[in-house]
Simulated scan of single mutants.
Amino acid sequence: MTTPTTPGRDEAREQALDLIREARSFLLVGHVRPDGDCIGAQGALYHGLRSLGKEVAIVNPHAPAPEFSYLSEACPYGVFEGGELPAHDVVCLLDFNDLDRTGAMADPIRNAGSKMLVVDHHPPSVEPFWDAAFVDVRASATGLLVWRILGALGAEVNDVAAKAIFTSIVTDTGWFRYSNTDAETLEVGTEMVRRGVDPATMYQAIYQRKPITEPVALAALLARAEYFSEGRLAVVDQPLGDPVLENLEDSDAVLDILRSVGSVEVVLYIRELKPGLCKLSARSKTSYDVNRLARGFGGGGHAKASGATIEGDLPEVRERLIHAAEEGFQRT
């Protein structure tokens, strides 16, 4: 594979491409606590649109995580601090399809009066509010969709954009281990390597720069794990106030370790963000749909990986989630 392609001809995606072609200035927006797919998709689209002579700005509710510093140093990821948004013709919402996922940015985006474009691979969670959408729920990553877009536009994919696309793919496929890894994903990953991306360097940057306190914190968190439904459901919670756990945020390592248990089909990781507010990260390795579970609590995502922010004290939220998850087993 030497050039990106857009499989098939989809009217909605063609409309999205036309909107990009016609617009002059863009604001790229990601969701709260942007992950590798979100950050990577933004970085690739930023450089691709700039190569076409477009004016582009990036503003997110939160800054990229430290492990993505190699992209932060090459892309101007702004952080919203209130006030007006940068001037733009089109606001491009990447890796989500619900404005509430932008936190405090939601109302300024609604009031901007600009065209809205969604580029996403998640199933829609709300009624369409956008002007155009480039969506494929079968795609392994939003960065993969950006690769298709840049190819359709004839945009340049420079060294930074290649790293950004690779970042999107590997972080959303668990380094090609998850069930969303398909032939196109592997082909695009290979193409990024052909373009100079060094997988070993990228892996070290993303996954091997943890603080020295990380192993002890992971051990303490795993010690809190409990199993339900004859071992099919694993649940771990992270309360506030524990000095060992206080610097440990969402950890794919915890989810992966619990998911590696033979009997476990579903893992729920519930983190107390502040008194009265919790964050759920849910993972499945079978046909169990954790997206359906998360939507029942105002969240969403994919069938195999989803999340939600839930009001309530940790013990109460935990019990509600366990009850709902066990009911879900009765439907599968």
Rank of each mutant, 00 (worst) to 15 (best):
R292I: 12
A65Q: 15
R101K: 03
V118R: 01
R9M: 08
E184N: 13
D35A: 04
E191S: 14
P239C: 03
V170A: 02
A139F: 04
L258F: 01
E230M: 11
V126Y: 03
V290E: 03
V90A: 01
E226I: 02
G40S: 08
C75P: 09
G8R: 05
I109N: 04
D313Q: 15
C92L: 14
L280K: 07
F228P: 07
D120A: 00
R224F: 00
A200H: 14
A200Q: 15
I149T: 09
V157P: 00
P199D: 06
N111R: 15
P34F: 03
R110W: 06
G8A: 06
T286C: 09
A57F: 13
D198P: 05
L153I: 04
V290H: 09
A225F: 02
H323F: 11
V236T: 11
L49A: 01
V32N: 06
T6S: 12
Y178Q: 08
D10H: 13
R21H: 05
S306M: 06
E316R: 08
L255M: 14
Y207D: 11
H323Y: 14
A305F: 00
G196N: 06
V29C: 02
Q208N: 13
F329D: 14
V79L: 00
Y227R: 10
T2D: 15
L321Y: 10
D172R: 02
L49K: 01
M105P: 03
V197M: 07
G262A: 14
F329A: 14
K163S: 13
L85D: 06
G300L: 06
A16H: 05
A325D: 03
L221E: 08
A106Y: 00
F129N: 12
K285P: 08
P124M: 11
V146R: 02
S260E: 10
Q15R: 15
A106M: 03
R232N: 01
L153W: 05
H31S: 13
L49M: 02
F176H: 06
D198G: 03
G300P: 08
S25P: 01
G196M: 01
L94Y: 00
Y288N: 11
E22G: 14
Q204P: 02
R331S: 12
A205R: 04
V157S: 02
G301H: 09
P76W: 03
V79D: 03
G298T: 14
M116P: 04
T102P: 01
L93M: 14
L17T: 05
G30Q: 07
L19W: 00
G30W: 00
D89R: 04
V197F: 03
G298F: 14
A63C: 10
V264Q: 04
S140D: 02
A219K: 14
S179E: 15
A155F: 00
R318I: 03
L240M: 14
I212A: 15
F80G: 11
G307Y: 09
